[in-house]
Amino acid sequence: MNKLPGFGLIERAKALAPLIAQEADEIERTRRLTPPVVAALIENGLYRALLPQSIGGAEAPPEIFMQMLEEVAKADASTAWCLGQCSVCAMTAAYLDQDVAREIFGAPDGILAWGAIAHEVHVVPGGFRITARWDFASGSRQANWLGAHVQVVEADGTKRLKQNGTPEIRTIVFPATSATMYDVWDVIGLSGTGTDSYSVENLFIPEKFTALRDDFTALREKGPLYGITTYTMFGLGFAAISLGVARATLDAAIELARGKASVGLKAMRENNAVQGLIGRTEGNLRAARAYLYATATEAWRDLNHTGKLTEDHRTALRLASTWTIHQSSQVVDAAYHMAGATAVFRANKFERRFRDMHAIGQQIQARDTHYEDVGKVILTAAVLPRGPTT
């Protein structure tokens, strides 16, 4: 029997959870994933979840990728965040010439990280040249390749435009040794991600080490996975991470409630208010998870059938990802407050998960303007976008 793409990734993530949890304090202290964790992620092929099978990747369906991240996030959010970031970056291999993709990702430790869209790259003979600095490169401390998304400026100084008149955004990839790194990640949550800044000075980028960002007409790989944009996949991955953090925090609160009693008060497990809060919060978390996975499953099924991700599905995935992150944040808040004074002690991990969850809620995949985008689609669509039917 042929194994499904990504077979074993979830099981391997679960098996690594004790090691990751054991290393979590050191990850937090040093603001980077520890060598044992990075080595274990590489050895078990987790960084290769979304890499094409043609170059040794798993090319896993979104649901497998999401569950893998969820399991890792239960142990440590920073580890899951780096893993999710670098896994999605690896989808760039589907756009590159295969020899270039193999040079970057052929070795088991071939890891790519990048920051936000910014700056311009200038056309020169054979490729491009750039001097620039970028921020928010999660996972860059484990990466041996870095990338960036930039506008293209022609030799005559004009901006290169796509057929629809918008600026062409091209992804450039270069060895991490070509960049200067800046240790700037001094933050309250997701401390271990090492989301640093980096710059290059007068760097030449050969044409073949670039790709049109999320331009499906430029795809070399034709598998259905690469019919999903990296932006959408980031949203699904980070929403799954938020579910893992919420699950771990609520489970910790439930375990605490089973045994904690305060002087002069009922034991928590006998307190009607606590019982009701746990029931409602559990229902909210299960609903958020079911909604996210049902939406992703239906989009994936239709993508496999038609070969195209519809605008309806893109809107649905954006809404589900954003709402799930926000709902997970509410679950973490409820569990944190339920734990009372116990939650403020670092040894109990409530406060770290609280900080990590609120850091997740501050990044671009959770911004409130996504609701405006979805609302605009709903109000202008000839047919109302539908929710998942599975």
Rank of each mutant, 00 (worst) to 15 (best):
L4Q: 14
F7V: 01
A15M: 11
I20C: 06
V37H: 06
A39Y: 03
E43V: 02
L50Q: 10
P52M: 04
G56L: 02
E63W: 02
E63L: 13
Q67A: 09
M68D: 02
E71W: 01
A73E: 04
D76R: 01
A80Y: 04
S87Q: 07
V88E: 02
A90V: 01
T92D: 12
F105N: 00
P108M: 08
G110A: 02
I111D: 04
W114D: 05
G115R: 09
E120C: 09
V123M: 12
V124I: 14
G126A: 06
R129T: 08
R129Q: 14
A137F: 03
A137T: 05
S138Q: 11
G147V: 04
H149I: 09
V150R: 10
Q151W: 10
E154S: 13
D156C: 03
D156W: 04
R160H: 09
N164P: 11
P167A: 10
E168K: 13
R170K: 11
R170P: 00
V173T: 14
S178P: 02
V184C: 05
V187K: 02
G189Y: 01
G192H: 05
G194T: 04
E201C: 04
N202R: 14
F204M: 04
T210F: 03
R213S: 06
F216I: 15
F216R: 05
E221N: 12
K222M: 10
L225V: 05
L225N: 06
G227K: 12
T232F: 00
F234L: 05
A239M: 06
A240I: 08
L243A: 06
A253L: 06
A253V: 04
L256F: 13
A257V: 03
A257P: 03
R258D: 12
V263I: 13
V263K: 13
L265T: 13
A267F: 02
N272D: 15
V274P: 09
Q275K: 13
L277H: 11
A287T: 11
A288E: 03
A290L: 10
Y291E: 15
L292R: 03
L303R: 02
H305D: 08
G307W: 01
G307D: 00
L309F: 04
T310P: 07
A316V: 09
L319V: 10
S321P: 15
S329H: 14
Y336W: 15
G340F: 09
A341T: 11
T342K: 06
T342Y: 14
F345C: 05
K349P: 01
K349Q: 11
E351Y: 14
E351K: 13
R352M: 05
R352T: 11
H358N: 11
I360K: 01
Q362K: 14
A366K: 10
Y371M: 10
Y371T: 07
E372H: 09
T380I: 06
A381C: 13
P385L: 08
